[in-house]
Every structure is written in structure tokens, then in C-alpha cells.
């Protein structure tokens, strides 16, 4: 009888719990943190195993060598945290250590080597900090001609740069900085899918190899224990 009542209560209790869970952070085995350089920014992507995003997780950026805290912030709804490389860090060529604290004992860290952000030419980066491109990477200016069309927002900075080359020309002369930026944006666009694959690869849970391997270990350990236990017992003769 007690059981029957308990069984009837279960859906009610479960749905109540479900409502409560909605507000609570997800609990998982581990958190993943993945960081890459995009223009002058370092983008940090945070997720739990099972591709659930870490919403509003605390991110701390440290100097990998000294451990000094450089900056801190929180991830957004999509589990992303984006910060521009501080000029002081760029000058010191310091490696960055990024620590994610997702709460309830979940923590992970990753590193961004100095070479990664230094390769995005500091001169061009200095220019991008002034231009709004840095904040609008999804729609990069492909070419000044195309920019006149749908990418109206992004066209402005490009035109200001290419003023010297004269407007309306089929092949306007571009200065080196602008060209570099365009190439960078194009490359960025091309490698975006690759990056997504990398992130997905990192977020993947344990595969069959690990699972079967673990079960094999347990069988082996039991075998060893059985062997020694049997050795202790003298065979009955």
C-alpha cells in the first residue's frame, strides 16, 4: 500500500523537481573550456560534457608564468566569454591561462600561448580596436565592392580606409593594413567550421574504447584478486 502511494506520488514529485531544476545549474561530470584567438580578441567557449553551455560561469584570466590575475568575467547565455588581449600582456608576450569556475565543484583550465595572439599582427590589431570590425566578426567585410550591398554595417570602416584609393573603382588600391584585415577576416571565415569541429571533438564524452577498457580493467583486477585469494586457500586434496 505504501509503495502504491509512493508510485502515484512519483510523477508529481518528479514534475515539481523538474521545475526546480530549471533554475538550478546543470550538474555534469566535467566542464570543458576551449579558447581561441579571433582578431585581437580571445574567445573562450565553455560547456559541460553533453554540449550544454555553461551559462554565467566565472572565467579568470591569469598570466600562465606568474599566476597573476589579469582579468575576470562571466560567460554569456551561449557559454561564451570574449576579451581583448590587454596591451600590457601583448607587450610582455605572456602566455594566458584561462580558468573556468562553473560552480558546484566544476572547474577546468586551458592555455592560450603568446604565439597564438601575436600572429594576428599587433599593428593591424591596433587598428581593429579603433574600428568596429572587432565587435562584428560574423559579417566581415569581404571586399569593398561586395560590402556596398548587404553588409552595410561593415562597409563603413572599409570605406574610410580605402578613401585614399578613390571611390567607385573596380579595383581600388588598398593600403597594406586594410588588405591584411580583409585576408584575416576571410581566413577567419574559412576556419570557423574547423574550429567548430575541434570544439565538438573536445566536448565529446568518453568513447567505446574508454568504456570497454575500463570494464576490462575491472575484470582484470577481479581476476588478480581471485588469484591471490585462491592462492591463500590451500587446495583440498
Amino acid at each position: 500500500m505504501k509503495n502504491l502511494i509512493l508510485n502515484r506520488m512519483k510523477p508529481v514529485a518528479a514534475s515539481l523537481a523538474f521545475l526546480a531544476v530549471l533554475a538550478a545549474p546543470a550538474l555534469a561530470h566535467r566542464v570543458n573550456v576551449f579558447a581561441y584567438v579571433e582578431g585581437n580578441d580571445v574567445v573562450v567557449e565553455c560547456s559541460y560534457s553533453r554540449s550544454e553551455r555553461v551559462r554565467f560561469g566565472e572565467v579568470e584570466v591569469l598570466d600562465a608564468a606568474t599566476g597573476a590575475a589579469l582579468l575576470a568575467g562571466k560567460t554569456d547565455e551561449k557559454g561564451e566569454f570574449r576579451f581583448p588581449v590587454p596591451p600590457a600582456v601583448r607587450a610582455a608576450k605572456a602566455d594566458l591561462r584561462i580558468v573556468l569556475k562553473a560552480g558546484e565543484g566544476h572547474q577546468n583550465a586551458t592555455e592560450v600561448k603568446a604565439a597564438e595572439y601575436l600572429s594576428t599582427a599587433p599593428d593591424a590589431a591596433a587598428a581593429t580596436t579603433a574600428a568596429p570590425i572587432a565587435s562584428a566578426p560574423p559579417s566581415p567585410p569581404v571586399a569593398p565592392v561586395a560590402a556596398a550591398g548587404p553588409v552595410a554595417a561593415a562597409s563603413a570602416p572599409v570605406q574610410t580606409v580605402s578613401q585614399t584609393g578613390g571611390q567607385g573603382g573596380a579595383a581600388p588600391a588598398l593600403d597594406a593594413a586594410a588588405l591584411e584585415r580583409i585576408v584575416e577576416a576571410a581566413v577567419e571565415k574559412k576556419i570557423a567550421p574547423l574550429r567548430a569541429i575541434l570544439v565538438a571533438e573536445k566536448e565529446k564524452g568518453p568513447g567505446l574504447t574508454e568504456i570497454v577498457g575500463g570494464l576490462g580493467w575491472l575484470v582484470g583486477l577481479a581476476g588478480i584478486a581471485a588469484y591471490f585469494a585462491a592462492k591463500g586457500k590451500k587446495p583440498r586434496s
Binding site: L22, A26, P206, L218, V219, A226
Partner: peptide
């Protein structure tokens, strides 16, 4: 000694059990 295999089997169950996700609405535990 006689219960060694039971222990190993249940240890295996615990080892794999954490991979079984119970979907509860949008979250799973």
C-alpha cells in the same frame, strides 16, 4: 572471497552507470 565477482560486476555497473543520462526535461542527470 566468494563475493569477489559480485563486487567486480557492481563496480562495473557503477563505472558505466554515470554514462547513462536520464533526461529530465531540458536537463539530464
Amino acid at each position: 572471497y566468494d563475493r569477489l565477482m559480485t563486487v567486480a560486476i557492481l563496480s562495473a555497473a557503477f563505472f558505466v552507470g554515470s554514462l547513462i543520462h536520464v533526461p529530465i526535461g531540458p536537463v539530464s542527470a
